[in-house]
Amino acid sequence: MAKTSKGTLYRGQAHGQWSWVAHRITGVAIFFFLLVHVLDTALVRVSPEAYNAVMATYKNPVMGLGEAGLVAAIVYHAFNGLRIIMVDFWSSGTKYQKQMLWGVLILWVVVMVPFLIRHLSNIFGG
């Protein structure tokens, strides 16, 4: 163990702990969005007016920022999920879990930067 940590019950380095906490939080957030998303899409079965009305409420900058946060959560959860699979199934997975977490964060930036340029120019560019 490189150093003993203070202020947390977690023994060892905290990378695994925080990536696990973030995986849970993003997972729960995505799940609750999914429930709402299925319900709003179900309005196509009511009438074109009802569906377009609820979609119109999504087309303002505040919801646009919410979507950016949602995509950020999804991309993290997806890439960190691949890391968990590598830890579970790859014989050297536990040895390289920390390096793979850096890989997850780098991939997250690589995906999020072009996405945010595209998405933010859509919601603020008019």
Binding site: Y51, N52, M55, Y58, H119
Partner: peptide, 21 residues
């Protein structure tokens, strides 16, 4: 996400009943 949010012209602005249909 690509088909419904990123690639349409204007992003989520493009999504309406006709888009879903």
């Amino acid at each position: 996400l690509w088909v419904n949010l990123v690639s349409p012209e204007g992003g989520v602005e493009a999504v309406d009943f006709a888009f879903v249909a």
